[in-house]
Design a binder for these strands. Structure first.
Lengths: 232, 232
DNA sequence: GAGTGGTCTAGACCACCCC
DNA sequence: GGGTGGTCTAGACCACTCT
């Protein structure tokens, strides 16, 4: 494990253990340098990581401060931290090999005669249905899938067994109305609001290999995004 | 202007001028180093910037590649790049000094006896209403506001005239149903879906000074988020 | 094994905040 | 003006990809 990753973790732990709150000041660079016996750049790299994950913010000439979310119970739309989600379970509805629709073929950047794995799941939080998830995997990349794999973590399997690495992803959000089938799955009424999140996951050559369409229950799901200001 | 900012801009321009597409390979580090006559770290910093703004992705041992969004007409939920938005106009509905509600006081971290500036605007894209925006500014930070300022860019005024700098912000998303008044403003029907985005903007001491509630027209607005994978 | 990006160091100097 | 974070350099060494 990289030095600056380790250090970032330790600083994160430090914040947690000291129960620091938003705006609390952390020790200065110099202190961390001597404490971990590494160069300045390494500490800066570690702090950069924490900054990116929205754990801290840094003010030049002033110091390093703790950053905390005020509201709880929200889902991150940025998968920076892959924190474990308890209370979440899922049910498999469909799993088969099929030809893509025009839309799916377009999103996966493949021809309509190629094969895709189709996976449809319902996801539950505290046993309440909060999301319908439909995924389409390019079969030439994801060569094999079965029930057991799908019920566990697909991404973990892709990485460990197939050596498929996600390099980046794009998410597209729409708000719309539920149709009858979706409403039934989510325990809502047709015409009720829904949040639709389309995602494409890309490989290291920039090609998408997974297109996912997520339909969220508007009563069970709230989201957050954190950002940094740079209005010039 | 910082060296690595300049270089990032030049590389961005290079991508644009060469009309490179997703997955196209960029020249290697060494080439950029000699081309700009700077050290390796500086180039890496520049590429880090481009990486953060989702213009490129880097694969160790392989190279630097162009990244592009597939869909157009979407609004970024990350204000990394503050690109100019044409076709967007706004109408001022209300502007006054008032006492905050409990909710607003809580979001601004102030007492209910303190003053806030209240600004209500409708935002139009291609002359279609796409957003109702209600903002509450802590008066002890934003000491003065008027009609002219509000119709121009508030954030620019805050930075230039009042020396108020946004360091970070949190966004919270909900999906819900429009009430009668909102529906009228947006040209929709009560009960139609809406996307609600609450934002708090924070100063360098971590304190929020602006709480904004944005209600989006679900037919006129679509959003995107880009991310990087790191499933371990 | 050659090519390529990433980490890490040590140190000079700079830019900003705040007293 | 002292304290503090940020930029930049030069170079050693490491880790991954691809053929």
């Amino acid at each position: 494990m990289l030095k600056y990753h380790q250090i970032a973790k330790k600083i994160e732990k430090y914040i947690e253990e000291k129960q620091l709150n938003q705006g609390d000041k952390l020790p200065v660079l110099e202190t961390w340098m001597t404490h971990f016996d590494v160069s300045k750049s390494t500490i800066i790299k570690a702090l950069e990581l924490l900054d990116k994950n929205e754990n801290i913010f840094q003010i030049r000439g002033s110091g390093i401060f703790v950053r905390k979310l005020k509201r709880t119970g929200y889902i991150s739309l940025q998968i920076n931290d892959s924190k474990k989600k308890d209370n979440v379970s899922s049910k498999l509805l469909e799993l088969d090999l099929r030809k893509p629709t025009k839309e799916v073929a377009n999103n996966l950047n493949i021809g309509m005669d190629e094969d895709v794995y189709y996976v449809k799941r319902i996801r539950y939080i505290f046993d309440q249905p909060f999301c319908i998830e439909e995924s389409y995997f390019n079969k030439s990349v994801v060569t094999y899938l079965n029930k057991e794999i799908v019920l566990d973590s697909i991404f973990k399997y892709l990485q460990d067994a197939l050596n498929v690495k996600i390099v980046f992803y794009d998410s597209y959000l729409h708000v719309d109305k539920l149709n009858e089938e979706e409403a039934e799955h989510l325990g809502l009424k047709p015409g009720d609001p829904k949040l639709l999140v389309d995602q494409t996951f890309h490989l290291s050559n920039g090609q998408p290999f997974d297109f996912a369409r997520n339909t969220y229950n508007y009563l069970q799901s709230q989201f957050f995004i954190q950002g940094k200001g740079q209005y010039i």
